[in-house]
Design a protein around this nucleic acid. Structure first.
Length: 424
RNA sequence: GUGGGCGUAGCGUAGCGGUUAACGCGUCAGGUUGUGGCCCUGAAGAUCGAGGGUUCGAUCCCCUCCGCCCACCCCA
């Protein structure tokens, strides 16, 4: 045991019995993206590291200390993707999607990698559902994305969650605000937490995000960006709010919501469980990134997107009492004894050709043992092919939910009978 | 990166400073001649997380390491 391999820290195996939750989620994603008109895109699991250093921002925690970076054998500097947006934007530019009808609505479900200490709801490899609207600066797009994620959660039976919304203005006006924020904090600099002192120069906005006791008093009295937005951003924000109200989605303004990625402007949002104060309770979050395409070397192109951690969504489904049953592994369990392998394989093939799922019992086991397996498999029917049946050219069809129901049928007829019995 | 809790068969647990480490679930096999679910019987399966120390003797006491979980930080 001690010498056996283990899954790497912070990763997990999704066993068959847990797959039902993933199926439910993928079904719901397929449906909600269809309803909103999003098309699927899949991008690589690794990218050039510089894509995130420039895009996500090298002062963010994600890039600074959580990214899996490595050199391949050719000396390329690569990173396992820690988030989805830069890769999708790269694909947008690389494939000339600017010449598609704008805006382009895309989604993906993708593994993400971040080197961090695992805990409840936080993994080194996790799966994100990610949506992007690229080429639109319409506030309706912002509201639409929030609405989309909200619908997904609702569809999956997750309630007791809340949308938290903020606007962090555009780059230029924000500079002026950040100067005011620095003025506010500067006299108290040495009394702030170490993290906040470090962020004072590099990432001033994050000071508002701090939950450190030492920072709270100054955070309370700090000027709030949402109260002094530039006219364009204010107008945009008002329109987003109005659209959310019209869509019937409850939300709360959180003036301290900043988010950890550098490229956001204007709208930022999160969806969190109402009763959960933990930071890693966040089910999804995102924002507008009108400057990102230029950072990546493309033409000015507005965009907005979000990511949602699906492992967390499953935890939240379970918290809400949502149960997903794996269901039976097959329709029919084929019991055989003394029949030639060719006959066994032939029967199974006939059933599968008729789209009936078959599991074939282990050769050589007793009839009792095979029927026990049939029962445990959850199959609706057991078929019995023994020496007698082979000799007579028949097969026994036994209903596992009904003790009395068992019939012997000619080989030519059993497939139809099985299909009929499964429909009943 | 910081702090706390925990590591006994596949899973869930018991155990005690001292002969072959126990129980339940699960797995496999039987309970007469080819028939499941319940029941009964049996078997397989654990170098008691790893290494070191204390001791005549350690799964049990001590140290180190590793792993898992939870929280902080941060994020999904």
């Amino acid at each position: 045991m001690s010498n056996r391999f283990q899954a790497p820290r912070g990763t997990q195996d999704v066993l068959p019995e847990a797959q039902a939750y993933w199926s439910a989620i993928h079904d719901a994603i397929r449906e909600v993206t269809r309803l909103f008109g999003y098309r699927r895109i899949d991008t690589p699991m690794f990218e050039q590291a510089a894509l995130f250093e420039k895009g996500t921002g090298d002062s963010t925690d994600i890039v600074e200390k959580e990214m899996y970076v490595f050199q391949d054998r050719g000396g390329e500097h690569l990173a396992l993707i820690p988030e989805a947006t830069p890769g999708i934007c790269r694909a947008y530019l690389e494939h000339g999607m600017a010449s598609w009808p704008q805006p382009v609505r895309l989604f993906t479900t993708h593994a993400m990698f971040r080197y961090d200490r695992p805990q409840k709801g936080r993994f080194r490899q996790h799966t994100q559902f990610d949506c992007e609207v690229i080429g639109s600066s319409d506030p309706l797009a912002d509201a639409e994305l929030i609405q989309l994620l909200w619908s997904l959660l609702t569809t999956l039976g997750v309630s007791g969650v809340q949308v938290r919304l903020n606007s962090i203005d555009d780059l230029e006006p924000r500079r002026a605000y950040i100067a005011r924020l620095r003025d506010h904090y500067r006299p108290h600099l040495e009394r702030l937490s170490e993290d906040s002192q470090r962020r004072f120069d590099r990432n001033t906005l994050r000071l508002l995000d701090s939950k450190d006791e030492r920072d709270l008093p100054f955070k309370e009295t700090a000027p709030k960006l949402i109260d002094q937005l530039s006219p364009l951003a204010a107008e945009h924000h008002t329109a987003v709010e109005a659209a959310l109200v019209a869509a019937g989605i409850p939300f709360a303004i959180d003036p301290c919501l900043v988010r950890g990625l550098d490229y956001y402007n204007r709208t930022v949002f999160e969806i969190v469980p109402i009763d959960d104060e933990r930071a890693q309770g966040t089910l999804g979050g995102g924002g507008r990134y009108d400057g990102l395409m230029q950072i990546l070397g493309g033409p000015p192109t507005p965009g907005m997107g979000f990511g949602s951690g699906l492992e967390r969504v499953i935890l939240e489904m379970q918290k809400n009492g949502v149960e997903c049953d794996p269901g039976p592994g097959c329709d029919v369990f084929l019991v055989h004894r003394g029949a030639a392998p060719a006959a066994v394989v032939g029967v199974a093939a006939d059933l599968r050709a008729a789209k009936v799922g078959v599991v074939v019992a282990e050769s050589g086991r007793s009839m009792k043992s095979q029927l026990r397996s049939a029962d445990a498999s959850g199959a609706r029917l057991a078929l019995i092919l023994g020496e007698e049946e082979v000799a007579a050219g028949t097969i026994v069809v036994k209903d596992l939910r009904d003790v009395a129901e068992q019939r012997t049928l000619p080989r030519a007829e059993f497939v139809e009978h099985v299909r009929a019995a499964l429909r009943a």
